[in-house]
């Protein structure tokens, strides 16, 4: 039996969290849904006593707005490119790390280093590495260190992110940076998973004379599948909220000089609508939530089918 004194005490302990959650979590859920269903809602208008009609106009308008479609396209593209690349690379690195003894801890620490960085600050370093510095001549004074490496390999230099750079060059820069940023977390989780795999499975495979490749695909990957599913799901959730890495590289203009917002994302779109177009922002945020929800559910369903515990 729960005595009333303990009831009272429990709520006392919970009260600060409950008050803050009501104001900053529960109310926003209700209010954002409400604003999304009031056509063309703006805070300014509502303060001035404008009455808004109920309907799905915000959703249909957002989905027809070319700026939003660009954001949606960029977000999905970056997700689809970076999640598989970073997961595969992280798996490869984790498996290799697990197979060595000396220097393992040092290398593990190095691979974790990108995690403890400010994604805006290091984005600026990546921008500098890809950046060209123009001079008077046809060829830039400096083509940037990445292009120097390309030229050393006998390739031509590429305009990655300066004025007049192509969309795909911009996307390539973003993919490199996002993958670099995503590796540490994935390696940490996958290596943790590998280290907890029971050694007996490998001994059994060795006795049976199973090849290394077969051991990997038939033992390591299945046993690791819960962790792989976990990093893929968190990768997609993070990927759909991509924003600050682009600000780090391209700045608030979300695109190269002369082509602003060409790399804008869903979150970028929502942020720019805050403070002037709340109805639109709310609809966009709910669409983002719906996408994340659906993708997570699909991932869960797929991983449930392929996961072996």
């Amino acid at each position: 039996m729960v005595d009333s004194k303990q009831q009272w005490k429990a709520w006392l302990y919970l009260s600060p969290a409950v008050v803050l959650l009501l104001i900053f979590t529960v109310w926003p859920i209700y209010n954002t849904i409400k604003m999304s269903l009031l056509e063309g809602f703006t805070t300014m208008g509502s303060v001035n006593g404008v009455q808004y009609q109920f309907g799905f106009g915000n959703f249909t308008r957002v989905l027809q707005y070319p700026g939003f479609i660009t954001c949606l396209k960029n977000t999905v593209l970056l997700c689809v490119l970076t999640v598989p690349i970073s997961t595969f690379l992280a798996l490869l690195i984790a498996v290799c790390l697990n197979a060595i003894r000396p220097l393992q801890r040092l290398l593990q620490t190095i691979f974790f280093l990108p995690y403890v960085t400010n994604s805006i600050a290091i984005g600026m370093v990546f921008a500098a590495m890809f950046n060209m510095i123009m001079g008077g001549g046809a060829r830039p004074d400096s083509v940037g260190i990445i292009n120097n490496v390309l030229e050393a390999l006998g390739l031509n230099y590429i305009n990655w992110l300066n004025y007049g750079s192509s969309y795909w060059a911009n996307i390539a820069v973003m993919v490199v940076y996002i993958v670099w940023n995503a590796l540490p977390f994935k390696i940490l989780i996958l290596l943790g998973g590998l280290q907890s795999v029971n050694k007996q499975y490998y001994d059994a495979a060795k006795v049976d004379g199973t090849s290394k490749v077969r051991t990997f695909t038939r033992i390591t990957v299945p046993l690791l599948s819960p962790m792989i599913a976990y990093v893929v799901i968190t990768g997609f959730i993070g990927g759909f909220k991509e924003y600050s890495s682009i600000v780090g590289i391209f700045g608030e203009s979300m695109g190269p000089v002369g082509n602003p917002y060409s790399l804008d994302t869903m979150v970028g779109f929502i942020y720019r609508a805050i403070g002037n177009q709340e109805g639109t922002a709310s609809a966009a945020a709910l669409i983002l939530f719906a996408i994340i929800f659906v993708v997570t559910m699909i991932n869960l369903a797929v991983s449930k089918k392929n996961t072996h515990y």
Binding site: P28, I29, V267, A285, L286
Partner: peptide
């Protein structure tokens, strides 16, 4: 729920 949804309100 993505944080941006809360941010608007």
């Amino acid at each position: 729920i993505p944080g941006e949804l809360f941010t608007i309100t």
